[in-house]
Amino acid sequence: MAEVLVLADHAGGRLRKATAELLTLARRLGEPSAVHIGPGAETAQKTYAKYGAHKVYVVDDADAATYLVAPQAEVLAQLIEKTSPAAVLIPSNAAGKEIAARLAIKAGSGMITDAVDVRAGEDGTPETTQSVFAGSYTVTAKVTTGTPIICVKPNSASIEAAPEAGAVEAVEVSVSDAAKAARITDSQPKKATGRPELTEAAIVVSGGRGTGGDFSPVEEFADSLGAAVGASRAAVDAGWYPHSNQVGQTGKQVSPQLYVAAGISGAIQHRAGMQTSKTIVAVNKDEEAPIFELVDFGVVGDLFSVLPQATTEVKKRKG
């Protein structure tokens, strides 16, 4: 069976959930091999093995962490050369998509981004599902040239364990000088909120213009549900919430199990980021707000009274 390379998404060996999802999906196409670039492979190895990695290629190269995108693409290009994989799966986040983009050009291979599903098609080669035009269309696509490079969105698969050896193999690669052109010179960590990552969260509670800048009811409701907090573009543009929390076309695209929109009208720009959520709930004063067209449950009312009451009730029910 052919190998399937999975680029691990990690910070110093601490894996993000997407990696286990990719390993789970990769098993449909062949034998997964995790590709671990940077330090911390020992920490992550157990998880790779648990989710079906036969091999773990480890590239512990300091340059890969200090320089953007290009070194990772070079590493993967060399691994494609070495292993002739059936496919390469990469997390569909900003960095992942750019790595895939450069890799596609280097390897002469087609690439697909933002897949929400991957499977073996009739001829055995990978076939993907994407949700496009603000979630109004579903597209089935294939890579027709080279090694299929597929970026898969977080939360696209439920993770399933399938233990394999996960044998670690150190890989010698060369990173060219040209790849060391854009350097990260400073990094200021954001204050940890203790909340789940927006794109990975099972539940997201977002606030918009209707908060008037006061996100506390949104955050308190989110915390009662163990949810991530999102924001509409209007709220971000007003400076009420950080851009990294923006849900929508120019922010994050999320597909949680439950999405709660509070004080968000539901313009196309916002819909593009949340329309594929499984269950949608909205709270809005304006009964004409377009967001209500999408909801499974909607409350026409003031979020400043509805959310606190819901928070109290949720806490009570959860005990």
Binding site: Q275, I280, E287, F292, E293, L294, V295, D296, F297, G298, V299, V300, G301, D302, S305, V306
Partner: peptide, 9 residues
Amino acid sequence: REQGQIVTD
């Protein structure tokens, strides 16, 4: 999407 239940607070 089918519109679900809407309640007025």
